[in-house]
């Protein structure tokens, strides 16, 4: 792709220095997002996906957290080098974020209108009256019925799905170039999740912003992403176009995940569980972090950590034994 990168994360490392030891939550993560595309970041608890997004927003609490290494180039500017004041101009304006639990991200003592207006007034030079009108417009755009009435309501008067719509309205009110969505539908019911995902897709077309979608749900990722980064234990282990990733996974972890989840569209006699436990961030294994649970692991995997390498065009995997995985796939007659 020859397009200009919107955000370019290079070798990012964010550690937490706690009493019990150093947690290498994010340890050498690289990816890029182009304007208008959706990058899905998928992984299990403790894999570092949320810390990655908080690092981009520079919202890592310090201490104990610290960005130890790497750069985050946003339109060519390194966000890790900015001070908090410069960062505040970018947050909410150029990059905004929505979270899993919309109730805790909204202030219960202000009306939703006040909160959206606040975001507008901070970043735009408009009068209060104009800001209110903009807030109402935003509520209309995110599909909230009776926006003139809803604008004066408090968060607790809204349902979970409505609150998430308000959060989206707030985050889009300043026309950001990048929207980071951290498990935005995990707390919602499946029919409401469908509403929100559809809303996000249509807003993306309308506003043309890029989305970084963080979730543990392989279904959600497949629905919304253009490209996907799979994270495991603080690393990106596979990185590819969404169709390539799901059609032909090149990392044993991704491959294992695909067969360990029940699929609504096809029947499986038995799930193929990945053995073992999700590693504790305080105590990640040596070498390839997946070696303790991988059926292809050899001595090399236990000592040397593989780097992300291009195994097919635009398809990256961090594994020493992609060939063994391919053999296994051929043997089982599935991709």
């Amino acid at each position: 792709m020859s397009k200009e990168k919107l955000i370019d994360v290079n070798d990012l490392a964010t550690y937490f220095h706690t009493e019990e030891g150093t947690v290498k939550a994010v340890d050498g993560v690289s990816f890029e997002i182009y304007p208008g595309e959706t990058l899905g970041i998928v992984g299990e608890s403790g894999c570092g996906k949320s810390v990655t997004s908080l690092s981009i927003m520079r919202l890592i609490e310090s201490p104990p957290g610290k960005i130890e290494n790497g750069e985050i180039l946003f339109n060519g500017k390194d966000l890790t080098k900015l001070n908090q004041k410069q960062m505040r101009k970018i947050r909410g304006n150029d990059i905004s974020m929505i979270f899993q639990e919309p109730m805790t991200s909204l202030n219960p003592v202000y009306t939703v209108g006040d909160q959206i207006m606040e975001a507008i007034l901070i970043h735009k030079d408009v009068s209060k009256k104009e800001a209110r009108q903009e807030a109402i417009d935003m509520l209309t755009k995110v599909g909230i019925p009776l926006p003139e009435q809803r604008v004066d309501e408090y968060p607790h008067q809204l349902s979970g799905g409505m609150r998430q719509r308000v959060m989206i309205a707030m985050s889009l009110s300043c026309d950001p170039q990048l929207l980071i969505a951290d498990e935005p539908t995990t707390a919602l019911d499946v029919t409401i999740q469908a509403q929100i995902l559809e809303l996000m897709n249509s807003l993306k077309r309308q506003f043309g912003m890029a989305i970084m979608m963080i979730t543990h749900d392989l279904g959600v990722i497949a629905e919304v992403s253009d490209r996907v980064a799979v994270m495991y234990a603080g690393k990106v282990v596979e990185y590819a176009d969404v169709k390539d990733l799901y059609g032909d996974p090149k990392h044993p972890y991704t491959w294992g995940l695909m067969y360990s989840i029940p699929h609504i569209e096809k029947d499986l006699e038995r799930l193929e569980a990945i053995p073992g436990n999700v590693p504790n961030p305080l105590n990640f294994p040596e070498g390839c972090k997946f070696n303790t649970r991988c059926q292809f692991a050899t001595d090399k995997c236990r000592v040397d950590e593989p780097e992300l390498e291009e195994v097919e065009e635009g398809h990256y995997s961090a594994c020493w034994h992609v060939d063994k995985l391919e053999e296994q796939k051929a043997k089982q007659g599935r991709g």
Binding site: D189, T191, Q193, L197, E198, G219, V220, A222, E223, I264
Partner: peptide, 24 residues
């Protein structure tokens, strides 16, 4: 609608989605 709302872990899978209005 419940069945059609489930996100499918297969980007090539196309469904006709019935999006329900409103909340429970």
């Amino acid at each position: 609608s419940l069945l059609s709302a489930i996100p499918v872990a297969d980007p090539t899978y196309e469904t006709e989605r019935i999006i329900l209005e409103g909340d429970v």
